[in-house]
Design a protein around this nucleic acid. Sequence first.
DNA 1: GAATAGTGAGAAAGCGTTTTCTCACCGCGT
DNA 2: ACGCGGTGAGAAAACGCTTTCTCACTATTC
Lengths: 345, 345
Amino acid sequence: MGRRATTRRIGIADVALKAGVSHATVSRVMNGNFTVDPAIAERVKAAATELNYQPNPVGRSLALGKTDTIGIVVPDLSNPTFQAILRGLSMAAAQDGYRVLIADSSEVSSEEAILAGEARRRCDGLVLCAPRMSDAELEELAPSLHPMVLINRSTMDTKAPSLMVDYGQGIQELAEHLVGLGHTQLAFLAGPERSASNGLRLQGLDKFKAAHPEIDLRMLDAGSSFEAGHESVDSVLASGATGVMAFNDLVAMGLLSGLHERGVRVPEDISVTGFDDIPFSRYTTPTLSTAAVPINELGQQAWHRMRDLIRNVSPDAGNEGPTIFLPRLEVRGSTGPVRAERRAG
Amino acid sequence: MGRRATTRRIGIADVALKAGVSHATVSRVMNGNFTVDPAIAERVKAAATELNYQPNPVGRSLALGKTDTIGIVVPDLSNPTFQAILRGLSMAAAQDGYRVLIADSSEVSSEEAILAGEARRRCDGLVLCAPRMSDAELEELAPSLHPMVLINRSTMDTKAPSLMVDYGQGIQELAEHLVGLGHTQLAFLAGPERSASNGLRLQGLDKFKAAHPEIDLRMLDAGSSFEAGHESVDSVLASGATGVMAFNDLVAMGLLSGLHERGVRVPEDISVTGFDDIPFSRYTTPTLSTAAVPINELGQQAWHRMRDLIRNVSPDAGNEGPTIFLPRLEVRGSTGPVRAERRAG
DNA sequence: GAATAGTGAGAAAGCGTTTTCTCACCGCGT
DNA sequence: ACGCGGTGAGAAAACGCTTTCTCACTATTC
């Protein structure tokens, strides 16, 4: 039973009454069905505007079996990367008249499945952004979430498109860049253990090590935040590295800040790289060399894949397998040639 | 008529059938109604879990007249301030089992009314964040949007709580801070004209001028972005100001970056302040003196007001008028005493 | 002029729930 | 033994829409 303690909101029945037609006809008129006599249609429209009638979306959703809404679940809404994806997704979806419902799992992987399920039931589709859950769990969940698109994660379920960034390739390019500048002692500030993208970076660095046995590459634990970078100053200095690759731009900026406090000059004494190319990285002092991830495009692509999924069941032919985005090396002020005395040393 | 071309999703009827009861009873069990025989309840629960039944939220919403969802419309999702508000709102709402639907007006004020209306109809309430629309339009729209809470804007409609930041007070404190350091030539990099918060800053500076007729305060047009700050370097240098207040932290960071490129030292040659205290402001070089806006609290408060509105019609007694948040002066590295020769000159 | 096709609108079913209404049944008291 | 309050579950209405089904009425054709 409906509530309606207060003054009922104005519904299709009111319009029908005022226009002297059945509510079926009102519905037809509102949906631009042309089997209605123009004169009557006019009368209905007049009544509708006069009563300021707006169809109730919940009723419509129930009848139509769709909500014109998609959900997105992210691990942490305070992360600029996820914010950017959300934004790209939201803007692109809005173009097609869709809204987005957000769910933040706060990095609690056990919450993800529940949030995802709930969001999915309320929406026409779901974007799962860098889920922290295990592969097994993801695999099990995937079918029940369809239509779904994955970001930075993939699944056997071929019905779920997946958008991935090749972090492994990106980190290798950064490493090569540093080597090209003469650095032989490198360090990597690693991100969260559960992060799949951190795993990809590590794999990339393994390849790099294999290709450059002469380079000394240390792995240092950090995290994904400013603070993590800031707190890593000591371990970085202790490592003796002259080229430091941070997990992402945030970590790099924290490190930059910490090094500045210690009076260590960048890039004269130490070169630093980030990852992601968040907007702020152009404005640090010095500006940050990084691997640019086409993040806006990612959100937009996520919507396009989703749209294909919703509209028909046939994605653009040959859409098997994940779409891979290649990071682009962005050389700025935080990397430079290794100092002569150090190179000599 | 419902679609169901594909395999029907499992509904309450299926559970009823399997448990050999009516769907009314299933509903009762699912909602913890204790007027059901424990034995039957057990049977129903078993059937539900076996079929992996999850109630359809759309059907529920229609029957219950509520969606457990609130909407937020923001002018620009790429603005860190709005991102932070969204986050605070989303987290707080999630605590109470509510979700949030987002709408980005892309700073197009004519879109706001439509977006707001659509979002409102889909949700149980609406947060209107720094709307760009005119006072008249807001006033007209307000009643139809109730329950609604406003951020950085207010209305005659007493039913709509409003959360405001006292930008006027904050900018005055920043100006006083600079004066206290010996600066007598100040400049303000103004934000977007349509922004109400920019207006408040200007009003605050008018008061400041009245209180300090001896201080030379120039108004310079900038904007609200990094780029705006970066492009203001020339006009700042031309103004001869030794203390510059930027519209917000982003503009300040752009300016910092531009000054650094020119070899102008901060704070030795010029002091710079921001506004907002976005996370990045702790990590610029030098760290940024700013007026801290309790942004997370803002989003959370927005939810609490909304919750009061939704739950009953009686907000905590004496909740008339807007809630005002006072920015807190945050002195960091970008401001310092005016140079001796300049003070002398 | 009558049969037929065509047009347009109302009646009603359906979407998936919740909740009121109704009633069968059980046990209790007199 | 009969009635009565209480309990618990099914029938059905309601939420607000869309769409199929049906049918009345008009226009067309031989």
